Amino acid sequence: MTRVYLVRHGVHDLVGKVLAGRMDDVPLNEAGRQQASALAAFFADRHIGRLASSPMLRCQQTGEPIATTIGRSMETIEALNEIDCGDWTGQTFTDLDKDPRWHDWNAERSRAGMPNGETMLAVQTRVMTLIDTLAMDDSAPMVLVSHSDVVKAIVMALLTAPLDHHDRLTIDPASVTTLDLWPGGGKIVRLNEAVPQGVAA
């Protein structure tokens, strides 16, 4: 059995305001950097054997203090990347709320897609291919730093839950979702765990 910690990146200035998607210039803000430091302290004594991250800057900056603390290099894995938001990348949620396609997307993630972007099913397919590979590795626990929709896609696949129910899950910035994986399956140990703040790594 393999333990995997799914980490959502720390907070940045666009959270709740703009659909950042794959914008490559979205750094953590001060609160996000503090969250990253708290995550590093959280993982300090958990004997992590592997650390990997989405290529997005906000994930890389979340993972860097963890890498320093646990003494491991951080891999970049494309399968952990944020959903490709296509034409909606960089749009405010206020503007998106006026687009009927946005409401269609959020109501039927199993069917709808983003204009010139990715479907939720495509995200789930690529990331579960990675998860299935990791389930074959029974070595030390690993940390994967990614994004809310990616974490949701993994959780829903393990629960065999419909993608249309994505809004029944909350994955907060800097939260940790813990999985135990084995070949052909896995279970959710903890979901959306908040890491205590104010503890130095």
Score class of each variant (00 low, 15 high):
98 K>H: 15
25 D>L: 08
201 A>G: 15
64 E>S: 15
118 E>F: 07
179 L>V: 01
87 D>Y: 03
9 H>V: 12
72 R>Y: 13
66 I>C: 00
108 E>R: 11
117 G>I: 03
133 T>E: 12
94 T>Q: 14
99 D>I: 10
117 G>L: 04
26 V>T: 14
99 D>A: 05
138 D>E: 06
147 H>I: 02
195 V>N: 00
112 A>I: 00
153 A>Q: 09
82 E>D: 14
114 M>Q: 04
8 R>F: 07
54 S>E: 02
178 T>P: 00
46 R>N: 08
122 A>Q: 02
20 A>S: 15
171 I>P: 02
139 S>P: 01
166 H>W: 13
107 A>Y: 04
86 G>T: 10
174 A>E: 11
118 E>M: 01
94 T>I: 12
68 T>A: 15
42 F>H: 09
50 R>C: 06
193 E>R: 01
187 K>E: 12
40 A>T: 10
66 I>Q: 05
72 R>Q: 15
27 P>C: 11
194 A>K: 10
151 V>S: 05
141 P>G: 07
176 V>I: 14
173 P>N: 15
53 S>Q: 08
166 H>M: 06
103 H>E: 11
96 L>I: 13
26 V>Y: 11
24 D>I: 06
84 D>E: 11
121 L>G: 06
107 A>N: 11
24 D>E: 12
60 Q>N: 03
106 N>W: 04
165 H>M: 13
126 R>P: 11
105 W>Q: 03
180 D>W: 01
142 M>P: 04
37 S>P: 08
165 H>W: 14
88 W>C: 00
52 A>H: 09
179 L>G: 00
20 A>D: 10
54 S>H: 11
191 L>V: 12
67 A>H: 01
98 K>N: 11
120 M>N: 04
79 A>N: 12
143 V>Y: 00
88 W>T: 02
12 H>C: 13
139 S>W: 05
144 L>K: 02
54 S>C: 10
16 G>E: 05
200 A>R: 07
82 E>A: 06
46 R>V: 03
195 V>T: 07
81 N>R: 14
142 M>S: 12
120 M>I: 08
5 Y>R: 01
55 P>L: 05
188 I>Q: 00
123 V>A: 10
124 Q>E: 13
106 N>K: 07
65 P>H: 10
65 P>W: 03
49 G>I: 09
50 R>S: 09
17 K>P: 02
11 V>M: 12
125 T>A: 12
162 P>D: 06
127 V>C: 08
32 G>Y: 07
100 P>N: 13
150 V>P: 00
161 A>E: 06
170 T>A: 15
117 G>T: 04
